[in-house]
Nucleic acid binder design. Sequence first.
DNA 1: CAAAACTAGTTGACATCGTCCATTACATTT
DNA 2: AAATGTAATGGACGATGTCAACTAGTTTTG
Lengths: 167, 167
Amino acid sequence: MAAESHAKQSTVTRVDDVDLDVLEDTLSFFIRSLNLAVSRDLDARLDGLDVARGTGKVTALFLIGRHPGIRPSVIAAAAMMDRSAIGRVLDGMERHGLVRREPDSEDGRVQALFLTEAGETLAAEVRAIVRESRAFFHDMSDSEYAQVVDLLRNIYWRIVKSHSGRG
Amino acid sequence: MAAESHAKQSTVTRVDDVDLDVLEDTLSFFIRSLNLAVSRDLDARLDGLDVARGTGKVTALFLIGRHPGIRPSVIAAAAMMDRSAIGRVLDGMERHGLVRREPDSEDGRVQALFLTEAGETLAAEVRAIVRESRAFFHDMSDSEYAQVVDLLRNIYWRIVKSHSGRG
DNA sequence: CAAAACTAGTTGACATCGTCCATTACATTT
DNA sequence: AAATGTAATGGACGATGTCAACTAGTTTTG
């Protein structure tokens, strides 16, 4: 479909002139490399806020805030992470006094997660910052932004659901 | 713009019913979490091929193949990575006999990178596999896929260029 | 020509992350 | 009561990205 300029090779000195080969039309490449840029940007905005570094903390903060009593495994699934990884994230957040873990009343294996006062406050701060992170994509129009979000959101939910159904 | 259902909280047991709060309309969230899923998928496809794990190896392979004599710092910029990180990636590829490093004839500080025979062969294999990775997004139509790629590609190049221009 | 400033690449230290595996505790099924 | 399955924890491991310090070569400046 796309223009496959697969012919000549040439040495380059500046990134601007680089040819990415197949990667030029590969969504996963852009997701993977933009992930680095986006994470750096978010980390900078969240600097000093107890939730910097990693997608897990922010996701956990919002999910617990929105669904008090939620269990760790649900957060793991939504963040596309391992249960043990989320466990460690929660350890850190508990240590920082953001999260409280209680045994679930119905199921003894399960933990129920709640935000502390500090957690609620932080969630509000972070919510504002996350909204501001839209600025990183300042050269996209609102409709373009909404378009990409819609398409990626669909993929996201398909994957999340397919992993919750089976294995 | 988007439906902000910011009111009620409720406990959930399944991921399917989860409300992501602001993240639901946040591009960086989907990029960050899809990055994990996409990387897992690619790693599985590349299993055993000397380039599994990490975006760096694949990017380096294609860039060197396309631009023989390219320098490490250009690859670093294109992969949105640190120069030192790329250096380590190249160490590994050199150890695996995929890449050759030569001193640049014009500038003594600079290295010129080339693929070995094995590198060329691998690049061809990986090119095919990367094309197949389109299957991961099988529930997107070709036009939707092209749409997202176009939009993300623009952002990608803006960031790459802005980082090459200044600091 | 000499000193200063800059650039390319390497190296080591460090924190984080994701994965794998074993273990404990509890539930549900039979 | 026994077996199977699920929730969470903990340790070990490898890979990754970042930062700062260092070497070496180049360009600029006076």
